[in-house]
Structure formats: structure tokens, C-alpha cells
Design a protein around this nucleic acid. Sequence first.
DNA 1: AAGTTCTGCAACCGCATTATT
DNA 2: AAATAATGCGGTTGCAGAACT
Length: 242
Amino acid sequence: MAGEYFGWGVIEEGWRKGPWTAEEDRLLIEYVKLHGEGRWNSVSRVAGLKRNGKSCRLRWVNYLRPDLKRGQITPHEENIILELHARWGNRWSTIARSLPGRTDNEIKNYWRTHFKKKAKSSSANNEKARARLLKRQQFQQQQQQQQQQPTPQQQMNQIALKKIMSYLDEDDQHRLPTLPQARQDMAALYPNSTAEDQQGFYYPVFNGYGFVPEAHNDENVWWDGLWNLDDHGEWCKQSCSA
DNA sequence: AAGTTCTGCAACCGCATTATT
DNA sequence: AAATAATGCGGTTGCAGAACT
């Protein structure tokens, strides 16, 4: 390493690294005001900042942008993060697009600190819930085999089930939203969905032992309603064909 | 009170993709 | 069309402060 000295705040090959000072922030804000976002590599030349382009972009995007929300992630935002992470995995920038004012870095950090580590602590309830879901999965497979050719809806349900199973690997079940919360989130996520669409979305609810279809005792109703929106259908079709 | 461990988060790194020359 | 530069993304690191022993 060719640093001027080792540790945080080092100057390496002419570039400053480490925490930003108030003066550096001021220079970067001034630069963006005058020249707009982009062309980050010219910041050092134009604004006299000893920071490379990547560092400048990161600082602006994650900290200085005026449209950033700041403050605690709300429970509603948390639900959206959970929902979208279940759907997209670690595609943080994709998830961030659905949360105005939040950055991919912020969401990534939030996920890691609040959810990721819980993956390692598998509780007895977790095991029970997994067993129940596994049973359902086997039931579904059996049904499909009997009918030879699974319907697209059955395929969708299979994919949805796998997603929930992966959820249990990575999260405490009680963090999953209740049905009304889930519907509210779906409405926010899919503004074009009709009230009927949202009513058709049944979210499995953890009751202390495993997942049950809230307000629906008939298993088939739950299965048919799960991941019922068109967009989810599209995603399932893609997953099925992949 | 002091030392250690844990937690949250800003910032870095490497790689992939996109834009420019 | 190829080379180079710029940008974007996800994973990781390291610091500071809080919590714990």
C-alpha cells in the first residue's frame, strides 16, 4: 500500500480517503449546484477536492443528496423491504427505487443489521414452521404429480412457497406483516392494482407454531390467493422458465 | 472504572456494465 | 470495432459509540 500513513483518513496516490470533512461536503455540494450530478471524475479538478470520482459520487448519493429522507426506517418501510427482498434478493438498488429518499446502502445496512444475523439463530418455532411448510410443499407436489401437468397457478404457488421457505431461513417469522399490513403494502407497491387484486392477496400469518392463512380456513383458497397479483404472476412465470 | 464485545453505519473495494473516444 | 473512462452495484471493512462483563 502506498499510503502517506496507514489508517483512516489516509492520503493514497494523491487521493484523500476516509471520513468526509464539512469543508469537503461544502465543496461537493457547491460543485453539484453548479454542474449537476455526474462527471464525478472532474470534481477534483473543478472543485479542488482531493477525492476520486467514485468517492464523490458515493458521498453525494448516500449522504448529501437533498431528497434523502434520513431518520429511522418506519415499520411500513420495513415491511416493504422484507417484501421486496423476498422477491428480489440482494438487489438493493432495485429495492431502493421503491423507497423514495432511501439509498441502496442504507437498505443494505438495515437488512444486514436487523435481519441477516437472525438467519443463524434458528429457533424451535422456526423448525416447526419449516416442517409445516415442507408438508404443504409435499402436498402440492403430490397434487401436481396426480394431475401430470401443473397449472400455471400451481407453479406460481410452488415458487411462492419456496420463497416463504427461504424467508424462514433468514428471518424471524413474527416480522412478517399481518394480512391488513400486507395488503396495504401491496397497494403501495402496485398502485395500478385494483381493490379486488388487493383483496385477493392473502398473506400467510405466523401464529406461534407455523403459518396459517389469515381469515381463511380453506387451504385451497389460501393457495389460490397467494401471490395473486399480475406482477407476481409475471415474476413467477420468469422464475418457472428460468 | 476499565476492558471487551456488540452494533450501526459510512466508506471502501472489486467487478460489471455503460458511455465515450 | 476496440480501447479506455466513467458509472453503478453488491459485498466488505473499519471506526465510533453503546452495551455488557
